[in-house]
Write a protein that binds this DNA or RNA. Structure first.
Lengths: 211, 211
DNA sequence: TAGATTGTTAATCGATTAACAATC
DNA sequence: TAGATTGTTAATCGATTAACAATC
């Protein structure tokens, strides 16, 4: 990549992908930035600007071919590759992730869960085995793991995260209610802070109530 | 409120709250915007600008009192109030939310789950009852519900969302992999699109790999 | 060819950072 | 009082929107 693309643009790409997927399901063959903008509630200008960060995928007078653009964005997002994921923390949230078949459609395959709870170790979640946390090193050495999802209490998250980095894991999907201290490390972190999300919702409720 | 506060600022408030909570746990009494900025990896200027949207909570030459600021932000985010939540869709994700005790610390109380699955109806998740979806109307009329969390398949999400709005629900916490079509309705929507998050992670993995 | 719609440049808008006088 | 640090104004930066020539 010659120029860095802003995170603001990246954030919007999955949404484009989602809408194009819906259009595809509805057998829509082509769409203009104007029509798409009306559906998505953004400006047509923004759509064209965003896409042109990656290349000129449209055609004057025609618009964009839905199937083509869907595939292109999928490739941009790396969904044409398989990503192996382990889930560390096999509580409800970890199990929920393991059960979410939808991810596989996008190339994300959960291969194992890890936990310290003896009641969970040895069980399976939709054919995915739950191992003891002490098996983590061995497993990571013998398998190509791309992403580790952290679904464990915040006091354990940081230690496990550092350990995973030492084991060579390159990306962490963090559900723990803490910002991992991994700035110095060469690892990609994507946070899902559910509490933060809920607090924003709460803020907006307050605003509505007192306005 | 006289002036609207930008969503960029709102987005950062829960993070401030989180860091102040940690400082509080560490018995730190006061902190300057400069010291906080170093911990949080943002500029001191931004912290002061953000906070001054809501008022002047600091003191020249002293900084900010941690406990005071923590409480203020909590109140700004509405965490001093109790918010009753119902979870519609009692699958893994719905159960994970119901099991997440942490939310209660911030005033969010899940009072009931709803599902169509006869195997789930009548069971309990941590003392929280699971009702049939046909009991939703009655329940909403007899109880003050502030938020409905939607943890169900996307094809059902839109219908249920509209139904909830008709029942008077003012806020929706949407986990379904779809943007709810509720623009015309007077309802607050907060989306948690896990797939989008995973795709952003995937994009960043690609970038690292080919750079 | 005429109409539609892109890709891209220029203009605007908003958000972030820097600077500093006010003041504890 | 002297030093520290805020609150706030001004400067900069980046992102969004508008406009339009290029072209299918």
């Amino acid at each position: 990549m010659t120029k860095e693309i802003s995170q603001a643009v990246i954030k919007r790409m999955p949404r484009y992908y989602r809408y194009l997927g819906e259009l595809l399901d509805d057998n829509v063959e082509r769409i203009s930035s104007r029509d798409l903008s009306k559906r998505m509630n953004v400006t047509a200008s923004q759509i064209r600007q965003d896409l042109n960060n990656f290349g000129g995928f449209g055609q004057q007078g025609y618009g964009y071919n839905v199937k083509f653009l869907y595939d292109v964005i999928g490739r941009i997002l790396g969904l044409d590759q398989t990503h192996n994921i382990i889930v560390v923390g096999a509580g409800n949230l970890g199990q929920a992730l393991a059960n979410y078949v939808k991810f596989e459609k996008f190339g994300f395959v959960i291969t194992a869960l890890f936990d310290v709870d003896p009641n969970l170790i040895g069980t399976k979640v939709r054919d995915i085995p739950v191992y003891g946390l002490d098996k983590l090193d061995e497993y990571c050495k013998n398998n190509e793991i791309d992403i580790a999802a952290l679904t464990l209490p915040k006091n354990k998250a940081d230690d496990v995260a550092h350990h995973l980095v030492d084991l060579g894991i390159g990306a962490i999907w963090n559900f723990a209610h803490v910002d991992l201290d991994l700035e110095e490390d060469d690892v990609i972190v994507e946070n899902v802070h559910l509490s933060d999300s809920l607090m924003r919702l709460s803020y907006n409720i307050m605003q509505k109530k007192f306005s």
